[in-house]
Computed example of a mutant assay.
Amino acid sequence: MAEISGTRVLLVEDEGLVALMIEDMLEELGLKVIASAAHVSKACELATKTSFDLALLDVNLAGELVFPVARILRNRKIPFLFSTGYGGPPLEQEFREAPAIVSRSRSTN
């Protein structure tokens, strides 16, 4: 298993409490969240100008899809993975093979 301690992470998540929870979990694993964004425009700026080793990208940011950020990361050759709380990841064809963390919501019906 590769050593992950000290890995610098860009976190892209629009739900504040979820972002804090993820940041805590990543730091417990020894990773360091060096920047975070809740909107695609800010995430694109960070993805372009910031130095980090890995990115965790929420697929849907307040109704806006995160794929422009993923394209920047792919061009910079920075690994990333998607996260989504909407069941199966609604990934565009070009990202169907990208790793994704999927949380399936339970129905209350």
Rank of each mutant, 00 (worst) to 15 (best):
T50R: 04
L29S: 10
G16H: 13
V102G: 09
L91F: 02
S83M: 15
T50S: 14
A70Q: 09
S36I: 01
S41C: 04
V69Q: 05
D53A: 02
V66P: 00
L57P: 11
P90V: 09
K77Y: 08
N60M: 13
P90T: 06
E64C: 04
A100E: 10
I78R: 05
M25F: 05
A98D: 12
E27Y: 02
G16A: 15
A2P: 10
P68D: 08
E92W: 00
A62W: 07
I22P: 02
V12A: 06
S41T: 15
L56W: 00
S51H: 12
L73E: 07
I22D: 12
G30E: 00
I78E: 10
G6A: 00
V33P: 01
A55G: 09
K49F: 08
M25Y: 02
D58E: 11
Q93V: 13
V69F: 10
A37M: 07
E64G: 03
L91W: 00
F82Q: 08
L73A: 09
L57Y: 09
T84N: 06
V69P: 00
F80D: 07
S51R: 10
T84H: 12
E64S: 12
V9I: 10
V66R: 00
L73V: 02
Q93P: 11
G88K: 13
V69D: 01
H39N: 05
L61C: 09
L46G: 10
L65Q: 13
E15Q: 15
G30T: 01
A19I: 01
E64R: 00
F67D: 09
V59L: 14
E23S: 14
E27K: 01
S103L: 11
R74V: 01
T84V: 00
E15V: 09
S51I: 09
E45W: 02
C44S: 09
L29Y: 03
L17E: 08
T50W: 01
F80V: 03
L17T: 07
P79I: 04
V66Q: 07
E92D: 10
D58N: 11
L17V: 05
K42M: 13
P89F: 04
G88N: 12
R8E: 14
E64A: 15
T50C: 08
S5A: 15
L61D: 12
R104G: 14
V33A: 07
V102I: 11
A100W: 10
V12F: 03
E97I: 04
K77Q: 15
V9S: 01
L54C: 03
R71T: 08
